[in-house]
Nucleic acid binder design. Structure first.
Lengths: 194, 194
DNA sequence: AGCCGAACCGGATTGTCAATCCGCTTCGGT
DNA sequence: ACCGAAGCGGATTGACAATCCGGTTCGGCT
């Protein structure tokens, strides 16, 4: 399906991605495509062909983080202790978003905005893994009844949002994560850790 | 300080607010001021004089909700049971945001964006009430140590965000609120309600 | 009643940015 | 070395925010 892309085209695509990554790292999540083009030293048209949309570029930027998350999720789903699995999963989902704002934007908006099939696939895969983790947790009765895998997803994204409001998430991260995890767990057996 | 505004000016200001309220109610939180002007049947200039910024208009729209929230917060701070106070406060903060998207946007962004002194004052007042509620809760040892009043604020805004992601918050509201409240509470005495 | 200046109005205009379109250039297979 | 497909670039269109200023209206005052 995907004809292998000409040499110069591939080079340009990479340049755009690199430039965009720089911009995001510098805190400019607005990602004005015209700007990116200028900084990457090429015409707007070129940028727009590779990434027809701000969203498309965002998804491309987020791809690595998404892949990494899937690894985390697989690990979580295979952990023998069900609750630990949940912890790993939610913590990973949170941390990956904090580490990569582009990824955060991609994963915390409704799926029907997806542009690339790749992102959609990733999303599905993650969903499936999350359901597995939650399944174990339910069997072990460590997660409060009535919560769906989507609920967990949403709640983590909410926590990310909460962390974004003030400044300097750093020290707040563990605190908020603890609140979320405790809130999700069923009437607990031992509730003093750290 | 505020010269009482000429009759026609007041009329126009109200027209803008009414139009904007309609727009928000119809789900257009983008609030394009040019658009509002057209729909309100006046020039853009007029709108811009009354509300120099999208943000200013938003704050004006949010004013009522904010006042109502302050009432709730006062009630919460005077409740004899400390934990109930917390519940009332957080629930109110959540519900008011769900009921009024403009208010949600105003209260869930960092204070240094405030345009009107009025909003800033409201914000301070709320902060103070929240501190009072949290103070009682701490004395009664019903809220997990290490959480500040700002933390609570952020976490509620995060929950609102979480509710916004999917569609139809309705049935999810209580579920998410429960998660938050349980997560905030100290190692609980009786944890089965509803 | 009618005057007058301050307050207010309107919309043409400027500036920013997303997104498209199409004539020209470059690539790479033959 | 040739040539058609693939890619490029930037002028252009369009949407919207925000400003500016000549004309209009208000309402206190005589």
């Amino acid at each position: 399906m995907t004809t292998p892309l000409r040499a110069d085209a591939a080079r340009n695509r990479d340049r755009v991605l690199a430039t965009a990554r720089l911009a995001v790292a510098a805190g400019e999540l607005s990602l004005q495509l015209n700007d990116i083009a200028r900084r990457a030293g090429m015409g707007v048209g070129t940028v727009y062909r590779h990434f027809p949309t701000r969203r498309a570029l965002l998804e491309a930027l987020a791809d690595d983080a998404f892949t990494a998350l899937l690894d985390d999720a697989r690990a979580a789903s295979q952990h023998q202790d069900a609750w630990t699995g949940v912890e790993i999963l939610l913590r990973a989902l949170l941390m990956r978003q904090l580490a990569d704002p582009a990824f955060a934007e991609v994963i915390s908006t409704s799926p029907d905005l997806d542009v690339s099939a790749r992102t959609a696939t990733h999303r599905d895969e993650f969903s499936e893994l999350a359901r597995a983790v939650l399944g174990h947790a339910r069997k072990a009765d460590v997660v409060r009844a009535g919560l769906t895998d989507d609920d967990l997803h949403h709640l983590v994204c909410g926590t990310v949002f909460a962390l974004r409001i003030g400044d300097e998430p750093s020290e707040r991260v563990e605190r908020y994560l603890r609140v979320l995890l405790d809130g999700i767990r069923t009437a607990p057996p031992n509730q003093r850790k750290r």
